[in-house]
Design a protein around this nucleic acid. Structure first.
Lengths: 223, 223
DNA sequence: CCCACATGAGTAGCATGCAACCAGTCACAA
DNA sequence: TTGTGACTGGTTGCATGCTACTCATGTGGG
């Protein structure tokens, strides 16, 4: 699909493209391209400028912050509910998923680690029995992935994230939903801060501090 | 737009429609209708069935619960943050919006009350400075409105909702963000339960209890 | 030299033709 | 009577022509 072309970095953010050239490149007509672009615009990945073409949105730090603010609000309670509702089979399966992450990480396979991490979290959220919430979270995750900003985690931070996940797992098997919520929140918050510092480091003249503050501004009210 | 036709009850849920007939009815060609339908499908308002036509989704109680679960998780922290960030002008404006609700309610104008209520809440959420969250909430609100299920609130429950809002306002002017969060949560929860009992009452053989339970199952983990 | 205006290239958006496809119906054979 | 097959009406989805609009460039006048 078109989404793949953008996600895979084929189309660079900020650049202009036309539906005509895209349709030629994909070997289809303008109509389906146009329709796909409208859907992508609704997702916020792309901006259609009237009679001017389409532009892949350069996601700003502000938007990244907004997305993570939402995730930090949503995921902890959902995961906690998931922990309550999980059957023994579910726990078994999630342990497998956790194993997959460790495996991929040990192999140093960044993309696969990311994918496995996503499956792990989405499965956990899915246990809460709210499909719409799960879909929403998936979309939010895709959004940040869209930008090439998959800052490969350093070994140091990668270890922290792994510790977080282990904590989630332990709380899960204890069926301690409150601990699950806290651990998930910690995990997502850490991911957000890593990403923000990473991006701001690559962008000269941009201080991460202002954005790091915002991450907590909203979530502190969840208590 | 097309959305209006569905929302206004022109198109009944569960019924089949074709893009052809819709385009004729709206006096445009099939293409824009088709594109609009795709967007509506992404929002979950409509389901496109291949070579079969399009069907306005009959929103189930399950989905209503899911939507409100999300709203109950999202809105309180956002409103609390909004209370912190609000300027005096903002407070003044929101008082006007609050006045509008009371006015419309006093006039017995149901739709206008609903509209004013929406503006009130969305403005409050907007103060949190997270546009994506505000948009998301707007969409969630539209979803439940989509169904004709705008169960006109009885005078009794309408009074309760008004009391909730007054409580929100008072907490706002006190700049008591914690109280704002609690009041908003109470308000949204009450709205949800009213809707659920209303819908289940109109649907014979459907017990509201199972769904009422679910409303709290997720939100209790927010604390 | 500079500004205003016309002109042209390129675009999105809409209308419409066309093919593939699905569901239900009807006829025919076992 | 029942099961199977083709047929038909209606639909989506894609391709393509056409119009209106936007921006940029170039030209002519001040």
């Amino acid at each position: 699909m078109l989404r793949a072309a953008i996600t895979s970095g084929e189309m660079r953010p900020g650049e202009h493209y036309s539906a005509i050239s895209l349709s030629q490149r994909l070997g289809v007509s303008r109509t389906p391209v146009r329709e796909a672009l409208q859907l992508l615009e609704k997702e916020g990945i792309v901006r259609i400028e009237k009679n001017r073409g389409v532009r892949v949105i350069q996601m700003s730090l502000d938007e990244i912050v907004q997305i993570f603010q939402i995730r930090i609000i949503l995921e902890p309670p959902a995961a906690a509910r998931g922990a309550e509702a999980a059957t023994d089979e579910d726990l078994h399966h999630i342990q497998e998923l956790h194993g997959n992450i460790l495996e991929a990480a040990a192999a140093g396979d960044g993309p696969r680690t990311l994918q496995a991490d996503k499956e792990f979290h989405l499965f956990l959220l899915g246990l809460a029995g709210n499909a719409r919430l799960t879909d929403l979270d998936r979309e939010l995750r895709n959004l940040v992935l869209t930008r090439g900003l998959v800052t490969i985690p350093s070994t140091r931070s990668g270890q922290d994230l792994a510790d977080d996940r282990r904590e989630i797992m332990e709380a899960l098997v204890r069926r301690d939903s409150r601990a699950v919520a806290l651990a998930v929140r910690e995990h997502v918050t850490r991911t957000a801060k890593l990403l923000i510092t990473g991006v701001s480091a690559n962008t000269p003249g941009l201080s991460a501090d202002d954005y790091l503050i915002k991450i907590d501004q909203l979530s502190k009210h969840c208590q």
